[in-house]
Simulated assay, not measured.
Amino acid sequence: MRSELKTVSDLEGSLEAVPSLKLKIAGKSLPTEKFAIRKSRRYLSPNPVSLPIPALEMMYIWNGYAVIGKQPELTDGMLEVIIKAEEMLAKGPENEYSVDDECLVKLLKGLCLKYLGRVQEAEENFRSICANEKKIKYDHYLIPNALLELALLFMEQGRNDEAIKLLESAKQNYKNYSMESRTHFRIQAATLQAKSSLENGNRSIVSSVSL
């Protein structure tokens, strides 16, 4: 137990040091570093709140789900971890990050469900994030990304008109959020594919957008 407590203490100390480790290249900070720094600030407050599933969140930032999603057993394992995190959030006390954390879990859960072929459940999870838009306090990147993932889900079903509307909303209505350039790149790629699919009368192939 003492060794476990020491490990937790060491990790928390490392998270507190994250802001001081920022590097600049050509006078600019890397978006992923900015993202990590913003996340680490939760541990600097007088009443720190742990991140629910930080490793799985970073996997999303690096588009890891499109790779893991090709392996059903791995995706099932991740879904189990996400569901446990969801249950812990439901049982735990509410705090200023509660809605943000719940929406993050919904986003990652929706992705796993999509790759497991549970399309309706995936759609419900993505939509629940959008329904809580006004309650999100910090992780504003979740809304445009939920719209993007929902659009990609629609494209796989041939619902390209609906997908394009969601992509336009994600691009036009949300600004100045974490990893915005990355999200805009994916939105643009998805939009081009959806429009091309409509012109050709075919179902979109979205694997290249998801990677």
Rank of each mutant, 00 (worst) to 15 (best):
R2L: 08
L5A: 14
K6S: 12
K6V: 15
T7V: 09
V8P: 00
S9P: 01
S9Q: 11
L11Q: 12
S14R: 08
L15R: 12
A17F: 14
V18P: 07
K22T: 15
K24T: 13
A26G: 07
A26T: 09
K28G: 03
S29A: 14
S29R: 09
K34A: 10
F35S: 05
K39G: 04
R41M: 09
S45D: 15
P46F: 01
N47H: 14
P48E: 06
P48H: 03
V49E: 09
V49P: 10
V49T: 10
S50D: 14
L51C: 07
L51D: 15
I53E: 13
P54N: 03
E57Q: 14
E57M: 09
E57K: 10
M58K: 05
Y60K: 09
I61P: 02
W62E: 13
N63E: 13
G64W: 03
I68P: 02
G69V: 01
L74S: 07
L74A: 12
T75R: 01
D76F: 11
G77T: 06
M78G: 11
I82D: 00
I83H: 03
L89I: 11
L89G: 12
K91L: 14
G92K: 09
E94W: 02
E94D: 12
Y97L: 08
S98K: 10
D101C: 02
D101H: 08
E102R: 12
C103R: 04
L107D: 07
L108Y: 07
K109C: 06
K109S: 14
Y115Q: 01
L116D: 04
G117V: 03
G117I: 01
V119K: 09
Q120C: 00
E121C: 02
A122V: 00
E123C: 00
E124K: 02
R127H: 06
A131E: 15
A131T: 11
K134A: 10
K135D: 14
Y138M: 11
Y138C: 06
P144C: 02
L147V: 04
E149K: 06
L150I: 00
L152T: 02
F154K: 13
Q157L: 11
R159T: 05
N160S: 15
E162H: 05
A163M: 05
L166F: 02
A170W: 04
K171R: 15
Q172T: 13
Q172K: 15
N176L: 08
M179G: 02
M179S: 11
E180P: 03
S181M: 09
S181D: 13
R182W: 10
R182T: 13
H184I: 13
F185A: 12
A190W: 01
L192R: 15
A194V: 05
K195F: 02
L198N: 13
E199D: 13
I205L: 11
V206F: 03
S207I: 07
S207W: 12
S208P: 00
S210I: 15
L211I: 09
